[in-house]
């Protein structure tokens, strides 16, 4: 962040106008989602549209979040499934990425570079390319229709970036700190847990949010691996809403809103970690 040298006044105005338009472009669709979710189904199906809801109602939210009715129970179940899958993925990601990143940073074993870059290459593979063989594999492992199939798959989505990011952190922690700890009486493991881990916690947080958001939003594997209605995660669940209640746009918008809230809150609170997760590798000068 810097106080940039002042440019011409004209550029300053262009900048403000551009940012304003961009913000509108970004926000208006979401504003419309919110407005729609607060309309009755009848009010939503008007032409020309009701620009501002005349009768604001939170009926859709009550239905979705109340265990008292069938729809609510279903929706809450999807939400719980999503939470569980995302949470498990996050925890496992950290547990697997931390030692791997540490090893890539500290040790000089043969094949280190080759392995490191092949891990990174995962970023290049289209999810759909892996869909069929993984589907076959999951069938063979009897994991189709289980959360585990998703957790295992999501794990590999987040791992490359997590390892890359954490390696950057470990590279910046002097090996002498660990040496000092070992001389002070710590085992190698204690030195890692007590000295290195706390220093890399921003990286671990970044890794965790990244994995969580990735897992929470994932659609195509969830669509393919799960078909038992009670096992669905939110993104696939949304689609069921759409197909079963075709005309209920306020309901779908409310469901979309509720689905987005956790990741947006998580992201806004931990924005700097998330941004760091995304940008780290690319701009490391």
């Amino acid at each position: 962040m810097r106080a940039r040298v002042h440019g011409d006044r004209g550029w300053g105005i262009a900048r403000v106008v551009f940012l304003a338009l961009l913000t509108l472009f970004t926000l208006l669709p979401m504003v419309w989602m919110l407005l729609t979710s607060m309309k009755t189904q009848f009010a939503a199906s008007q032409y020309p549209p009701e620009w501002w809801p005349r009768n604001v109602t939170f009926e859709q939210y009550f239905i979705l979040l109340s265990p008292a009715n069938e729809t609510g129970r279903e929706f809450l179940r999807y939400m719980f499934n999503s939470l569980w899958v995302s949470f498990a993925t996050t925890v496992l990601s950290v547990m697997v990425a931390v030692p791997a990143a540490y090893a890539f940073s500290r040790f000089r074993f043969p094949g280190r570079n080759l392995l490191f870059y092949s891990v990174l290459l995962r970023n290049m593979f289209p999810a759909v390319v892996f869909l069929m063989p993984l589907f076959i594999l999951m069938r063979w492992l009897h994991l189709v229709n289980t959360e585990l199939s998703l957790i295992l798959t999501y794990l590999t989505f987040g791992l490359p970036l997590s390892i890359w990011l954490l390696k950057g952190f470990y590279d910046n922690i002097p090996a002498q700190l660990e040496q000092a700890a070992r001389i002070d009486g710590a085992t190698r493991f204690q030195a890692f847990i007590q000295i290195v881990m706390p220093l890399s916690s921003p990286g671990i947080i970044a890794t965790a949010i990244y994995s969580f958001i990735l897992a929470w939003n994932e659609y195509v594997y969830a669509l393919t691996f799960l078909n038992d209605k009670s096992k669905l995660t939110l993104p696939v669940g949304l689609q069921r809403f759409f197909t079963e209640y075709t005309t209920n746009w306020p309901g779908l918008m409310a469901a979309s809103f509720i689905t987005s809230v956790p990741v947006v809150v998580l992201f806004l609170v931990l924005q700097k970690y998330f941004v760091r997760a995304l940008t780290e590798g690319a701009v490391k000068a």
Partner: peptide, 19 residues
């Protein structure tokens, strides 16, 4: 292991635990 040798060490860049 270093911890069992009962020696103390001072490093060039001090290696103080920053946190």
């Amino acid at each position: 292991d270093p911890k069992d040798r009962d020696i103390a060490m001072v490093f060039q860049n001090y290696a103080l635990y920053p946190n």
